[in-house]
Design a protein around this nucleic acid. Structure first.
Lengths: 162, 162
DNA sequence: CACAATATAAATGTGTGCAATATTATTGCT
DNA sequence: AGCAATAATATTGCACACATTTATATTGTG
């Protein structure tokens, strides 16, 4: 009975808003990652870019390269967010940026050795996070399915929506 | 079969990360709110503050006042976020800020008439949002329960965690 | 070839988030 | 009263997010 709003139906009540739950959960997860990522000197969005790069590397595309546009597409983010972020990762020595010779509009991003090497350290993070939160990977499966379903409706809004 | 990662178990694969789903869903919901809130000239975090104020008003606490600290607590945000945000709402004429007379450390936030009046316009937003997304309120209940459960583990991290 | 239309990034400006520090006021202790 | 400890905000600095504008390069059309 701690929460007196459990049975109300006021659509403007904070406690009734799924959106606020998402917003808070997202910030909380990022906060949970923070101490782990600090060890790698990465922020969460920077970590996401590294995930994309590591994945592209495994896929073995040419020389483990991704264009800025491809990274934006994967993460549903705009160049205005990605460009400065990538520059910081370049400054940290994890990535390199180079314009394509045949089309100088596109910027090609590649992992450095240091960036590639960081993957092994990062591999421990997802497990460690769940451990700290006391959540088993299996317990996460329904949540994952639910979020995938939700995102199927929501993500179009991050492309050309409205 | 569009997604070839459905059956892999690489914990660093972007598609396997619940956290990324949360992160994307949160941004997408904010994006969905944006066009609706633009009509009220509010951003999503500003809207959250207004929700808190409207709720306090209904509760009839004294003079519909909340302190900065109470707002921070409700939204799990820091003063570094809330203070400038409230100042913008004050500039927009929706709120007033005043230090308590008996304790000048605490800043008391109150709705103006304009701020109070905005509630009726805002009331239509949650329904309109679901309508646009093609989601029924009932379909949202399982998601809500799941997020509440998740937040129970996560939100302590936004207080004094780690 | 000229030239408009398109494509890809970058730059700019505003608004969060958040950690760390500073400011000011109150309280508790002696 | 004096003074350290505590409390509540504010300030600062950095890193996203995102809309808008700009810069540059490519493509398509006549």
């Amino acid at each position: 009975m701690a929460n007196s709003n459990a049975c109300t139906h006021d659509p403007l009540a904070l406690d009734n808003q799924v959106c606020f739950l998402l917003y808070s959960a997202s910030r909380a997860v990022t906060a949970a990652y923070r101490p782990l990522l600090t060890d790698l000197e990465l922020t969460y969005p920077q970590y996401l870019v590294m995930l994309v790069m590591w994945e592209a590397n495994v896929a073995g595309k040419a020389d483990c390269k991704m264009t800025v546009g491809q990274i934006c597409e994967k993460l549903y983010l705009e160049t205005g967010t990605i460009t400065p972020l990538i520059k910081r990762l370049e400054l940290a020595g994890l990535l390199t940026r180079k314009r394509l010779e045949n089309d100088e509009r596109v910027v090609c991003v590649s992992l450095t050795e240091k960036g590639e090497a960081l993957k092994s350290k990062a591999a421990a993070i997802p497990g460690e996070l769940l451990c700290r939160l006391g959540i088993s990977p299996e317990a996460l499966l329904p949540a994952k399915r639910m979020l995938e379903e939700l995102n199927q409706k929501l993500l179009p809004l991050l492309k050309g929506g409205e």
